[in-house]
Write a protein that binds this DNA or RNA. Sequence first.
DNA 1: CGGAAATTTGAAATCGCTCAATGATAGTGG
DNA 2: CCACTATCATTGAGCGATTTCAAATTTCCG
Lengths: 260, 260
Amino acid sequence: MQKLSLHRFSEFVCLTSAEVQAIERLSVDRLHLKRHDTLRSQGDPVRDVYLLVEGWVGSCVDVATGTRQMVKVHLPGDLLGTPSITVRAAADTLVALKRTTVEVIPVTALAELFMSMPRVAAGLYLTSLKERVFLMDRLTSVARTNAVQRLAAFLVSIHERLLLAGLEGPQFDLPLSQIELADVIGITPVHANRTWAQLERTGLVRRSGKTVSLVDIEGLRDLGAVPDRRFERLREWSALGTDKSPWQADRSVAPGSTRA
Amino acid sequence: MQKLSLHRFSEFVCLTSAEVQAIERLSVDRLHLKRHDTLRSQGDPVRDVYLLVEGWVGSCVDVATGTRQMVKVHLPGDLLGTPSITVRAAADTLVALKRTTVEVIPVTALAELFMSMPRVAAGLYLTSLKERVFLMDRLTSVARTNAVQRLAAFLVSIHERLLLAGLEGPQFDLPLSQIELADVIGITPVHANRTWAQLERTGLVRRSGKTVSLVDIEGLRDLGAVPDRRFERLREWSALGTDKSPWQADRSVAPGSTRA
DNA sequence: CGGAAATTTGAAATCGCTCAATGATAGTGG
DNA sequence: CCACTATCATTGAGCGATTTCAAATTTCCG
C-alpha cells in the first residue's frame, strides 16, 4: 500500500509507463491526517485535489439547518475533491474517517496533465461519469428505500469496492461511527443504531466492534435493491489518441459479477 | 431555438469556430419525441448520447420495488445519457416530459472529438464535475430536508437554469405532472399534491395550471436551504491546449448571484 | 483512571405513506 | 365539435417509519 494506487486513472484506460510517471509527478506534497481531521472545508478556496493513498475520507455537504449529508465515502486510490474545481468555494467538506495519507495535487498540475495526455484525460472523464452513476444510485437509494435497505445497500457497495482494492472474503473493518453512518445513509444517529439492530436480526450481516461480516451478500443485495452496474473499459477511448504504443483495452471490470 | 444550443460544451471553455463546427458535425440523426416517449430505457445497450435541442427530458432510475427516482431534469442544451457510457447497460431511462427534439450522437463520435480536441474535452470534463456537484446537492436535499423544502429547492433550481437559457422574470411553465414531480423530489404523488398546497400557503409561490410564479425567490432559497454554488470558467483549462487563437477565459457564471 | 464521545434504549410526536374515493382535465376518435 | 376515456389532481382517514427528546450505559483516548 506504500506504492501509489492509481485506481481512478487506470480503471477505464490502460496506462503507458510514461503516463503513469506523469501522474506520479503531479503531487507536490503528502499530508497525514488523523481521524476527524478536516482536509478541506466547504466554502474554502479550491487550489488542490487529493489522491487518497491510505485511509478513508468522507465528503460531506453541510445543510443550513445544521445537519450534513456524507455524499461519498472515499477509499484508497480515489481522487478527492475534483467536483469542487468547478466552483468558487469548495462544495463539500473532506474529513478523515480514520488515519489517512493523501498526496496533494494542484489543480493547475491536473489541468496541464489533462491537456497534454488525451488518454489520461479520457480516464478522468470516464471516472467522473462513473461517479455520477454512483451518485444517481445513492440518490435513488435514499429517496426510495427505507433505512434497513439503505444500510444493506451501503454495506454491499463498500464491500464491493474493498474487493476491487484487494480484500478477500466477506469480512472487513468499517471505521465509521454510527453518527457517520447516519450521515451516509441519510437518517438520524439514533435511528442508525436501531437500523443496525434490525438488519442484524435478519441474519444477513454480523458485526462485532468495527468489524462487519456479510453473511449473505446476495440476500443483502436483494434487500437493498442494489442495481447491477457493470462498468467496463471502452475500446473507443483507449484506441484513440496520440500514443503509438500498443495496449490491451478490452478487459471489463464487473464489480457486481457474482450476481450474473 | 432552431440553432443548436451548446450550453454543455461552452459553459466552462470558450470555443473557437472550428471547435463549434466539430461539435455540430457529431450528430447523425435528429429525433422527435412526444410527452411520455422513452428515448432509451434502463438496461438498453448504450451506443449513443443525445443533445437536447428542444423540450424537457427526465433521467429516471428504476428501483426493483416498482418505484423510480428522477435523478435529473434535462433542459435544452443539455447533453443526455453520458454517465451510461461507462456501463454495459444504460443506468437510467430517458423519458420526454413534453414535446422534445434531440440530436443523436454516437459514443464513438464523442470519443473521437474528445481525443482530438483537448479544450472541448476539458469542457466535457468540467461539465461532468459540475453535474456531480448538482447530484451531491440533490442527494443532500432529499436526505436532509422535508417535502416542502425539497419542492422549494427544486423550483429555485429549475428557475435558475431557465434564466441561464434566456428566461426573464419569475414565471415559467412546469410541464411535469405531480406524479413526475413526486419522482423528482422523492415523495409519493399524493403527498406531492399536499406539498404543493402547503408551499402555496406560504405565499412564496403561485401556480395556475402548468404555470408557476416564484413570488419570493430569496424566501424560497432560504426555505429550501439551497446552497450558493458559483460555477466559474477556469483559466487553467482554457489557457492550455493545442489551439493558438486567443480567447477570453475569465468570465464567471454565477447562477445564484442574486444572493451575494 | 477520568472525561468525553459513542452506543443503546424508551416514549411520544411528526411526517410521509397507503388505501380509497371523487372531481377535473386533456387527448382521441367519431 | 362532442362524447368517451385515460390520466391527473384533490381530499380524507388511518397507519407506519423515522425523528425528537431524554437518559443510562459502554467504549475510547489521553
